[in-house]
């Protein structure tokens, strides 16, 4: 209860603000439609209303307020419209349908998971290299940081074009972009984690004359687990962003990114918002799953 009440309060405030924001955002469109349908609008004529402020229009035409929450193609759809669209395109549609968000979500999710796996693997390998090799420590880390300063939206089309020219297409280019975004938090977290054993722990292994490999498997890797999970949670969210961004420049026909793009082409704001929410729900679910695994693993390891 102590968690639920604040969360619900914040949610209620957001929803209330959202409904309030729909009124000025949508008022002009609503008035144009109402005038066409024969209603008396103040002032009449879309041309005269164009330069007027949205709040002035709302005050002069308060009858039109309910309609701002029910438009077909609103500038800003109301929460219940998005919820309805989400319901209709997930539960009410067969998942094989091209209009099912479950279908599109799966397309994006599969690229996300593949990219996440590649990125995590790469990140761990790089971190091991950085911790055990001075040369890699000096050379790899700066480049890893630089790689994250390039806007992914600029890089994504090039990755896709380059991979296409060597005959790679489909899920792989998207996964590569996902991996590009997700390896970084894993590298940073794992370097810190692998270096987390203190001097005493390392000295203890020295007194046993343990090999570096034994030190890695018996001490460094287990010690790094809390850091790894923190990184994985950031990494999987980044992976999802990467997969969606990877769908934008290709004219992809399937995936949450494709739904966003198609929605914006055809002015289907409800579709855009529902795709956005689907992505957010997906990300939250992935992070939540990782959190559960984290809790179980760390508890078992006596580190929670």
């Amino acid at each position: 209860m102590r968690v639920i009440v604040p969360v619900l309060t914040v949610l209620a405030v957001i929803v209330a603000l959202w409904y309030a924001a729909c009124i000025p955002m949508n008022i002009k469109g609503v008035l144009t439609e109402a005038e066409r349908a024969g209603a008396e609008v103040n002032p009449p004529g879309a041309k005269d209303r164009r330069d007027l402020g949205a709040f002035g229009l709302v005050l002069g035409n308060s009858f039109a307020i309910p309609a701002t929450w029910e438009q077909d193609r609103p500038r800003l759809p109301a929460p219940h419209q998005v919820a309805e669209e989400l319901w209709n395109t997930t539960v009410m549609k067969k998942i094989t349908s091209k209009r099912s968000l479950v279908y599109h979500g799966w397309v994006t999710l599969s690229a996300t998971l593949l990219g996440f796996a590649i990125g995590t693997g790469l990140g761990i390998l790089l971190a091991v290299g950085i911790v055990y090799s001075r040369v890699m420590d000096m050379s790899v880390m700066p480049w890893a940081i630089v790689s994250q300063t390039i806007p992914i939206i600029a890089l994504a089309p090039m990755i896709i074009v380059v991979l296409y020219s060597i005959g790679v297409q489909g899920i792989i280019p998207k996964a590569v972009i996902s991996a590009y975004l997700s390896f970084f938090p894993v590298v940073v977290g794992m370097v810190k984690g692998l270096r987390s054993p203190d001097a005493m722990q390392l000295d203890l292994l020295r007194t046993y004359y343990a090999s570096p490999a034994q030190g890695f498997w018996k001490l460094r890797l287990p010690s790094s687990m809390p850091y790894l999970f923190t990184s994985l949670k950031i990494g999987i969210a980044a992976s999802l962003v990467g997969a969606i961004v990877g769908e934008l420049p290709t004219g992809a026909v399937a995936g949450l990114g494709a739904r966003l793009l198609a929605g914006s082409y055809y002015g289907q704001t409800v579709q855009i918002w529902s795709a956005l929410f689907a992505a957010a729900i997906l990300a939250a679910t992935l992070v939540a799953i990782l959190s559960v695994i984290e809790q179980r693993v760390l508890k078992r390891m006596g580190m929670a």
Partner: peptide, 26 residues
């Protein structure tokens, strides 16, 4: 055998598992 000021046992190993650590390494 060296004993430090802190016990420094691995939390992810049982007491027996901790005692086995040097034995596994050797």
């Amino acid at each position: 055998g060296y004993v430090f000021q802190a016990a420094g046992l691995y939390p992810w190993r049982t007491i027996a598992g901790n005692i086995k650590l040097p034995l596994e390494i050797m």
